[in-house]
Computed example of a mutant assay.
Amino acid sequence: MTEPGTVRPGGRTARVRAAVLRAAEDALVEKGFDGLDLADVARRAEVGKTTVYRRWGTVAALLADLLTDMAEQSSPRAETGSLLGDLRANAGLVRRTLADPRQGALFKAVIIAAACDERAAAALRRFYRTRIAEWAPCVERAVAQGELPAGTDPHEVIKAVSAPLYYRFLASGDPLDEAAADLAARAAVAAARAGAYVRP
């Protein structure tokens, strides 16, 4: 997940990319995927249309780059010294991102896009694979230390932390608060300790 307010430094190329991606975020939040238009993004970013068309070419390619950037800018994995502490940190990051007015709206637009466009779906899957891989080592460490059963699938444990938070975000409308994040982390740890995520 992406912490709100992160900024990438760099030269002119990086500044152009950052401006275009920020403009794409704005357009997604305001208009959704169907309203995303490269010419409009160029206008919002105050860069030439040819620059945007030459570098990204399609809306799907722009969305893929936006998701790549979001994954790269996400906060690194926490190192709290305990599995529960690490998964609480993960759940807290997911919760803060989804509860943030801008980031939450952006993720909702991207998820809607992924539901109706295979290229957007592929980009979203790559984003989540990156984030899950970032957090999997905390589960691997717990397995190595005997805190979890041998054969526990680290990726499934990490997915189990965020899944109930996304359910609240997209479906149930239940509060997306710190208590929900804590419950998600504790439930994932309990299930993992019970062997629920041991590979067949």
Rank of each mutant, 00 (worst) to 15 (best):
Q73H: 05
L38V: 10
L98T: 01
A121N: 12
Y197R: 06
L93S: 12
E156Y: 01
A190E: 15
V7F: 14
T6R: 15
R17N: 07
A114Q: 07
C116T: 14
A187N: 12
A123G: 14
V189L: 11
M1D: 03
P175R: 07
P149R: 06
Y166D: 01
R129L: 12
T13W: 05
P200K: 06
D86Q: 01
E79C: 03
G151S: 10
I158Q: 01
G81N: 10
E178A: 15
V16F: 13
Y166E: 03
R12T: 14
R8F: 03
G81K: 09
E140Y: 00
A191Y: 00
P9Q: 08
G104V: 06
E3G: 02
G57L: 03
R12S: 14
L84I: 09
Y166M: 04
D65F: 01
K108M: 13
A109D: 08
E134F: 02
A115M: 13
W56H: 13
Y197D: 05
L84Y: 00
K49G: 15
P175H: 09
E46V: 12
A45P: 07
P4G: 02
D40P: 00
A160P: 05
L93D: 13
G151C: 10
R44T: 13
V47S: 08
S75A: 15
G10E: 11
Y53N: 11
A150N: 08
G10C: 07
A179H: 12
E30V: 11
F169L: 03
R77D: 00
D153E: 13
R12G: 07
V29Y: 00
E178W: 00
A122H: 12
P137C: 02
K49M: 06
R119F: 08
L38F: 11
H155C: 06
A122R: 15
R15I: 04
A115W: 03
R8A: 14
A89C: 07
M1F: 01
L62Y: 03
L28R: 10
A114D: 04
T130P: 00
R129C: 02
A150G: 12
G195R: 10
A24N: 05
S172D: 04
T152M: 11
P9L: 11
V29G: 02
E140V: 03
A133R: 04
V47T: 13
T152K: 11
A194K: 09
L183I: 00
R131N: 01
R12M: 10
S162P: 00
V139K: 10
L124K: 09
R44E: 13
P101C: 09
V161C: 08
G57Y: 04
L84V: 13
A180Y: 07
